[in-house]
Design a protein around this nucleic acid. Structure first.
Lengths: 347, 347
DNA sequence: CTGAAAGCGCTTACAG
DNA sequence: CTGAAAGCGCTTACAG
């Protein structure tokens, strides 16, 4: 491999000092325009690139954000919630737009990652995208706070107000999903998903659901809530529990699309038709949602916007600017898994 | 933010020289065990982390791999082929296992990324995961070669033998998919997917398909091949062209699951039943495949293994060891979109 | 507008 | 086993 060109090589060829080369490459107006252009063209010719390690060491920042995907160790690759992958896409893009690099790491909850990034100057700040049990990594967050790490976390608002969280408005999402079911004449929606503080996002969706019931003057039957984590299998299981319970229900609000898809399978196996007998709304609008059978009505989170805001927020944190938690609005995507009660299509 | 501790701070507290601290932290046997342990405990206490920029600058490597996802600019986030996201997961894991960091970037084909990573010492090597038109970035690869960059590319074997490619055995995949259809008594399989050198992976799947036909002594009707890129919409369109063509066919081998899913939709719209009238095999085993209706028989690529081999290969390249192109075997996953001809299930 | 010089925080040959 | 010293390749205050 040919030796890498350094700023000194360029200085030599250009007949100027190394300092001038450095200035010229950063396009400093201090350097005579003509000299600047000459230096830049020599740099191009030599295929010169500024050594990041050297410049970062000097400036003490590294223009890099670390993204930690904290996952449940029981999950295998193929089970990664597609929603997170979509977030990953938008975060990558947003980071690049800001001229930063993105270091990605999948972390087991168990591993000792706190501080591993910013303290070693590998990243200027951290974005945490977590799934799995929320309470499990509370203590890690505390440590990050202690160490004054710049980080934001995706999800519901945190108990500790110093933790900056950015998330979609799960309460509103739960509200509009349920309102949609009620608007279509459903009166007994079941909720599939954890509603405890272990999954604050699901819990907020459930709270929105409850609010919608209340607004409509309908009683909320807490028994019609069945816990589930965000997998198809768990949704299938939860739906079966609902069916076995013997409780009356005319619709389902599933806390995630995967849960909804599992629920549809459970209903189909018993010959219950969706949406005629039971309407179903999911959450996330993952790619599968539109291919489900029937295509799933769901609450879409704006991952594009979410990624941008996450990145913007860490960047502000890094610059020492004030940032506050934000809730990103959600949108209902109506497809064929919900239908007004009593209306029969002739097909 | 509290000032970050440096090795000098530790040296001061430990009453030794900074050199000794550096050695002790790297667990050098040169340092007296007792001293070593004392230094390490002080480091822990101070929450000291080696500054990566400084150590990388010194050692001239950075223990980082860059992953470039080269995408078709027309795609939006949600359309990223789920297969690539699964690869991303396994690559992240494999990189971490080797003690390396992963820098991820989504790159437009248009942008000027060659050399942007290794030349600037941001990464020691590059993994290229591309989708979109293959021929478009040939020239970029040439440049990377010129610059002696350490890189591997996911996909079919490359014309230029100096380019190290790692990929699943697409020929074998096409072969087993088609053999499966023929074994079940199908005689006129159509192929949906590009078969030109613009998409060498699809082309190889088509070649495997052709081989299976030949082995079975069946004529290959080239008209039964309809181009498609890996999206549901394109699969839908290609299937409609097939239907419009009036050509007889009793089964479809789709070059990707997304194409297969689009094709199923097209068939259903015309009331053609899958698998009774037309059997369909897809490719990739993306998460959606098992939720499709009917669940899709498909060729699974071992992404876990693929990620490991990709990472291992760049690492070897970096160390200057010899590496050669590898083909990873594929596996047929039989689900309900294929069924032996003539057998009727009473359901 | 330009240059000489210091220094970011490490690692490692060299000397003892 | 340990220390003094050089140096990785930059950026930037200082001086002119």
């Amino acid at each position: 491999m040919a030796l890498k060109a350094t700023s000194i090589d360029i200085a030599y060829r250009a007949g100027v000092s190394q300092s001038t080369v450095s200035r010229a490459l950063r396009n400093s107006p201090l350097v005579n325009l003509e000299t600047r252009e000459r230096i830049q063209s020599i740099a191009k010719e030599l295929n010169y690139k500024v050594d990041k390690n050297a410049s970062n060491l000097r400036t003490q920042n590294c223009k890099t954000i670390a993204l930690l995907l904290c996952e449940d160790p029981t999950n295998d690759d193929s089970l990664i919630n597609p929603f997170f992958l979509s977030m990953l896409g938008s975060i990558t893009r947003a980071t690049a737009q800001q001229g930063y690099d993105l270091l990605v790491s999948f972390q087991q909850l168990s591993s000792d990652w706190h501080g591993d990034y910013e303290d070693s100057n590998k990243a200027d700040g951290i974005i945490l995208l977590g799934y799995g049990d929320y309470l499990d990594y509370e203590s890690k967050l505390e440590k990050l706070l202690e160490q004054n790490t710049h980080f934001v976390i995706w999800g519901a608002e945190h108990n500790n107000k110093s933790v900056l969280s950015i998330g979609c408005d799960n309460f509103q999402g739960g509200l509009i999903a349920t309102e949609h079911l009620l608007d279509q004449g459903r009166r007994q929606p079941a909720f599939l998903g954890d509603s405890s503080s272990h999954s604050p996002e699901f819990r907020d969706r459930y709270l929105g659901h409850s609010r919608a019931m209340k607004q409509a003057g309908l009683p909320l039957n807490k028994k019609r809530q069945f816990s589930a984590i965000s997998t198809e299998a768990s949704g299938f299981e939860a739906a079966n529990k609902l069916l076995d319970s013997g409780l009356a229900f005319d619709s389902i609000f599933a806390a995630s699309d995967l849960i909804a898809i599992g629920a549809i399978r459970a209903l189909k196996e018993l010959g219950i038709s969706v949406p005629e007998q039971v309407s179903i709304v999911g959450y996330d609008d993952i790619p599968v949602a539109s291919f489900a059978n029937p295509p799933l009505t769901t609450v879409k989170q704006n991952t594009q916007l979410a990624g941008e805001i996450l990145v913007e927020s860490v960047l502000k944190l890094i610059k020492g600017e004030a940032v506050k938690a934000q809730l990103i609005p959600t949108k209902l995507i109506v497809r064929e898994s919900t239908r007004p009660l009593g209306i029969q299509l002739n097909s």
